[in-house]
Structures are given as structure tokens and as C-alpha cells.
Amino acid sequence: MDLLFSLALQILYGIANLALISLGLAIVFGMMRVINLAHGEFLMLGGYTVVVATNNGVNLWFAMLILAPLVVGLIGLIVERCLIQWLYGRMIDTLLATWGLSLLFIGIITSIFGASTSTVISPPLGTVTIGEYTSSGYELFLIFVVIVLLALVYLTLKFTSLGLVARATMQNSDMSACLGISTSKIYMVTFSLGAAVSGLAGGLLVPITGVLPNIGVIYIAKAFITVISGGSAILAGTTSASVLLGGVNGIMSYITGPTFGEVALLFAAIILLRLMPTGITGRFFRKSQ
């Protein structure tokens, strides 16, 4: 019983982790049809923000929850104004340009901080004991954060005027522009919000994974596959794909060890895409956001 509960918690954490690293990408992709290949580097920049801030004596919680999204959101804003806005409608060029950006960020951070970082932030909040098994309290906290984040995105999209305008732009950008909405401004806000969420995720993951200039690589494969399997709806897509793929990954990792967990995740995603080429939300929950 304790084993089952502990395993369920582990799988739940896997799902939350997947949702956390994909949400920023999903916001940008769902709203703007832009696949941001520099997504992993936004996570990495969030991580570095936390490391630099805590090294300078800033409170860890403040650095993770406020500073990381703020800094990366600002970087996202600059990136959108300088690069992405020239490439709307040219999906492949956007992919390539953001890839260049990703290399650029890795290069800049490596030049500043070196190829490795010595700072180790240990996960706060201690451990939680379940029968004879222990679980990290910080992982429980992350599950909680992901639920709050998803709820926040839902409430923003559903009940604020920004959300209304954003949904209109998502559905039909030309018509929204005709109705007097500045779609360019909406895209700008969306992109920096997506970047901010990525920064938050990167910051929150620092105590667990540490941070390196090329740590983005570890995240992006899973993030892309989650977002693409999920389809264009931001919330329903991310959640359903995270549950499905995170579940597959967790169960396979438990059975065969971590080596084949990710491979199973990829296989599940490719078979899913063979059956539903536009992702889960392309087939089901079409009306959702």
C-alpha cells in the first residue's frame, strides 16, 4: 500500500514536471503557432537568475518565484521585439532563428559563467515520510505549484479581458485585428508571458537538477514532444499530454529503470501522432483553451 502510494506520488511528480517544463512553450505555441527552439535556454536563464541572485544573498524563494520569471520575461520581450516579430507567418524561419538564438544564449552564458557551475542549491522543505518510504517535500511543493499555475492560466484566459482578447486572437487573428485589437501587442505580451513561465519553471528546477549552460537540452526534447502531442489548446493539451506521457514514462521507468523511460515516452508520442496528427486536442476537447 505504501509502495503504491509512493509510486503514485512519483508518477504524479513526473507528470507535474512535464507540465512545468512544457507550459511556457505551450503558451507561445498555442497562441502564436511559434515553436520556440530557444525554450530550453529560457529555462536555463531562469536557473542562472536564481543561482546569481542567491549567490548575492537574495532569498531563495523570492529569487525562484519572482525574480526568475521577471528577468526571463524581460528577455523574452526583447527577443520578441528584436527577432520574432519579423518572422510571423514564416514558421520554418522562426524555428531556425530561435535555434540560432538558443546557440547564442548557450554561447553567452558559457562565456560569462564557464562551462560548469559550482553552486549547489539543495532542495528546501526536507522530506516527507510515507510509511517506510520517504519523498522529497520539494517535489510535493512543485506538484502544488503546477496546479496553481494551470489554474492561473485558466482563470486569466477565461475571466480577464486580456484573456478574452488573447483567445480571440488565437482563434482568428485577422478578424481580431479588424475589430481593433492590436494583435502585434498581444503577441508581444504572450511571448514574454510564455518566457516568464519558462523562467519560473527553470528557477524552480534548479534545486533538483542544478544548472549548466547547455542544460536546456535535457528539457526541450520532453517539452516539445509534450506540446506537439497535446496539440494547440494550451491548457487541455498540456495537461492531457503530460498525464499520458508522464504516466507512460513513470511506469516504464519503474519497470525497466530510467534508461528506457524516455524512449517509451517518445514511442508513445510517435504512435499517438500517427493516430492523431494534430495532437490530442486536435481530436478531442476541441472547444477548450
Binding site: L96, G100, L101, L103, L104, G107, T110, S111
Partner: peptide
């Protein structure tokens, strides 16, 4: 100059 940096700039 970091090689990644240069490649990134070339690509962009």
C-alpha cells in the same frame, strides 16, 4: 569568442 555564440549569430 565562444563557438556556439558565433554559430548562433551566423544562423540568425
Amino acid at each position: 569568442l565562444n563557438a556556439n555564440l558565433v554559430l548562433g549569430i551566423i544562423l540568425v
